[in-house]
């Protein structure tokens, strides 16, 4: 181990050694069937392997990331190159998946969505205490969380550049809209009064209605802001989903009843949350998700939630704001 060049800091060496040690335990090549437990085992192993520069997978990853950065940072950071960058990523993803599938052939052949079950669930009998009794896995759920964090900054810069004009327009509107107090904004957006939930807020905090500001749907707004810290499209979609469930939770807690939404009621509330969340590059976020989300999600629940976010972005850019604000 003395052969390491001395300029590598010792904590980095320690990390490499720990990783290398952990990687000595390799999950079985094949179990005949992919279960939730086995999938997690594979995923954890791959995360480590792709992170370790002396592992063949780590070497491969390092090379890809270096080339990607060299191509798209600096002079390469030009909106016209976005298309190429996305094509490269798509190609990285499917080719990395193919490599991985040689190691673990139980993964689905095409990388398409596959519903897998927990071992305990299929054996019948007791339900496991874990969250995941079943799980839909695909090429994207496996590879995106490994690859995208490593190339995220240059990639997102490209999206931000590409969507610059729309994002500027959106941002100007968002800032204007945010000058309004909670009641004013909710009224402007046409939120049904029963969802203003002002009684609860008034009881706790603010003395007067017009002074009410940034008190409504706070947990949903905070949740949505996390979209910028998620790297993969699936994780970003899950942030959107969590935002909706925070809205539901807020309403149910305040009204003390189970809320069955229809879009007529839900859309304006979500619209409000999006405006208040003030996500600087929302257009870039949406574009990234659209490019990289897997097609089997498009028509499902995550799909309609994403469409609703996209629709809000469009609406914020295009709807006239009353001039008195």
């Amino acid at each position: 181990m003395e052969s390491f060049p001395t300029r590598i800091p010792s904590n980095k060496i320690r990390r490499i050694l720990t990783l290398a040690e952990e990687l000595e335990t390799i999950p079985p090549h094949s179990k005949g069937r992919l279960t939730v437990e086995y999938y997690h085992q594979i995923k954890t192993y791959l995360h480590k392997a792709f992170d370790l520069p002396i592992h063949p997978l780590g070497k491969l990853m390092e090379g890809l990331v270096d080339v990607f950065r060299a191509a798209y940072i600096g002079v390469g950071a030009h909106p016209r190159l976005l298309d190429h960058a996305v094509k490269e990523i798509t190609s990285f993803v499917s080719r990395l998946y193919n490599c991985v599938r040689i190691l673990f052939p139980d993964l689905s052949e095409t990388g398409g969505p596959l519903l897998i079950e927990a071992e305990a669930a299929s054996e019948g009998g007791t339900t496991p205490e874990t969250d995941d009794i079943s799980l839909v896995v695909s090429c994207g759920t496996l590879i995106h969380p490994i690859l995208l964090p490593k190339i995220y900054p240059p990639l997102f810069d490209l999206y931000a550049l590409y969507n610059d004009k729309d994002d500027e327009k959106y941002w100007e509107r968002v800032r204007k809209l945010n000058k309004q107090g909670d009641i004013g904004l909710m009224a402007f957006l046409g939120i049904d009064q029963k969802f203003w939930l002002i009684d609860a807020v008034l009881k706790e905090k603010s003395p007067s209605l017009s002074a009410l500001r940034n008190q409504s749907y706070c947990s949903a707004i905070e949740t949505l802001q996390h979209i910028s810290t998620a790297f993969s499209p699936k994780e970003k979609l899950e942030v959107i989903q969590k935002t909706f469930s925070e809205i539901t939770k807020t309403v149910e807690e305040s009204m003390g009843d189970v809320q069955v939404w229809c879009m007529d009621d839900l859309f304006p509330i979500f619209h409000y949350v999006v405006i208040r969340a003030q996500i600087r590059h929302l257009g870039a976020e949406i574009h990234l998700i659209q490019d990289l989300m897997e097609p089997h999600l498009e028509n499902g629940e995550l799909g309609i939630m994403f469409t609703t976010l996209h629709a809000c972005y469009f609406q914020i850019q295009n709807e006239k704001i009353p001039s008195h604000g």
Binding site: G112, P113, L114, L115, E117, D131, D132, I133, S134, L135, V136, E238, Q241, K242, S245, H296, L297, E298, N299, G300, E301, L302, G303
Partner: peptide
């Protein structure tokens, strides 16, 4: 993640059955 109790891909998961 409180909402992740049910299968993640409920959205459009392929019907295994």
């Amino acid at each position: 993640m409180s909402s992740a109790k049910r299968p993640n891909g409920r959205a459009s998961g392929p019907p295994v059955g």
